[in-house]
Computed example of a mutant assay.
Amino acid sequence: MSAFSLKMDIAENRFFNGETSTLFSRQQAQQARRFHQKMTGYKPTPLVPLNELAALFGVKKILVKDESQRFGLNAFKMLGGSYAIARLLCEKYHSDINELSFEKLKSSIKEKMTFATTTDGNHGRGVAWAAQQLGQNAVIYMPKGSAQERVDAILRLGAECIVTDMNYDDTVRFTMQTALKNGWEVVQDTAWEGYTKIPTWIMQGYATLADEAVEQIASMGISRPTHVLLQGGVGAMAGGVLGYLTDVYGAKNLHSIIVEPALADCLYRSGVKGQIVNVGGDMATIMAGLACGEPNPLGWEVLRNCATQFVSCQDAVAALGMRVLGNPFGCDSRIISGESGAVGVGLLAAVHFNPQREVLMHQLKLDSNSVVLVISTEGDTDVKHYREVVWEGKHPAVQ
């Protein structure tokens, strides 16, 4: 196979201290998972071993958590939105989350509510789905350039969907102002001063997938992963999942790598500086779910304390991951992974094909004993673009 070089900037986390968070612990994740288990259609998403790809890449195991099979929604995001809405309703009606299901919550709602959020697609779809399940309203705002297919998926769930002429972070601010004026409840997966409770619940809800993965890893007879690759974005998923994993395995026992698009690498830049750094502009990356320029301070605290490395990479890395997963090596299973979902495997592939492979493997502490956990956070949520990448070769690895 060809050798080629894709842009990957790797930064060591000089501010790592290994301090875990009580907010994003095993206990909190298991409470969220118990709630999700009561939902109709719940089942753990597959943890897929790619043994032949692992042998090719020179590691012991590659384990991919395939979130395309989550509640038929093609992405993991509903885990956070549904749990946060449930916690919000429990607080409003003085109920115990441990004793309630969505069905019981639906019967307890005494007045129609409207949930609002900003999304690049998957989070808004999850909020719209949860609102529909509860018989409530949802208003979803999306930044400019959002794919029509993602808009249509939200509309099919009965929500109102509005595409703005602003980038993601400015749309978040607009959503907050509009919701405040109209008396709507904001269910946003990023936090700011005075708005931390709901983002905390969302992040705790995301950890359901990590609790499943830990259980699945143990069932394979594997004591623990040595590495985990997590997508950046605002850092909500990465923070929630890493918080849980470090509580289970210990931060010093897990080499955690946070991966972002170079066009929206706010966590990478924050990791280099040791404090939050915002990124502005259009952030026109193909990784729509990661096109966020302002870190979630709750997630950032976990990542600053416990992440091993931060990586900023070009879009072709994600496109490579989509093709590798969609065209499996040897007898490995096929995984349909979207732009944001595939960047972890894309990074592993980009390292393998790089002329400086050995140097990069050493830098990432990857070797024949490495067990790598990767989260494929979404499937082909934009089918048109998925086919342009996988069929037509858009964003090629080799020019």
Score class of each variant (00 low, 15 high):
V359K: 12
E185C: 08
A11S: 14
M287I: 15
K394G: 04
L73I: 15
G271D: 05
C331Y: 12
V302L: 08
G18Q: 13
G289C: 15
G221S: 11
G124T: 04
I286L: 12
M322K: 00
E19Y: 04
M1H: 15
E160G: 11
D9A: 11
A138V: 00
T246H: 06
L89P: 03
A179F: 02
N354I: 12
N51A: 08
A32D: 13
A349Q: 03
A29L: 06
N98I: 06
R173G: 07
T377W: 04
Q188P: 13
K43Q: 14
Y168Q: 12
D96G: 11
E212S: 09
A32E: 09
T190A: 03
L325E: 05
I140L: 07
C161E: 02
D189Y: 07
E193D: 12
I375P: 02
I97G: 05
V359R: 11
L325P: 01
A213K: 01
W300E: 10
G121K: 02
H385R: 15
E111I: 05
K77F: 10
F4L: 12
D152V: 14
Y42P: 03
F76C: 06
G274H: 11
V172L: 07
A131P: 12
Q148N: 14
P396I: 07
Y168L: 14
L347E: 01
I375Q: 01
Q31V: 14
R269N: 12
E392W: 13
L320P: 02
Q231C: 10
A86D: 11
N122Q: 08
M1Y: 14
T377I: 00
I97Q: 06
G281H: 11
C313K: 07
E111W: 12
G183N: 04
L155V: 14
N296F: 09
M1G: 15
D9W: 02
Y83V: 03
R14D: 14
L53I: 08
A86G: 08
Y206G: 13
K43T: 08
E260W: 11
H227T: 00
Q132W: 11
G326F: 04
Q188M: 12
A131E: 14
G250Y: 08
V390N: 08
Q28K: 14
P297K: 02
Q216T: 11
M283F: 07
D380I: 01
T308S: 15
L229N: 01
E378S: 01
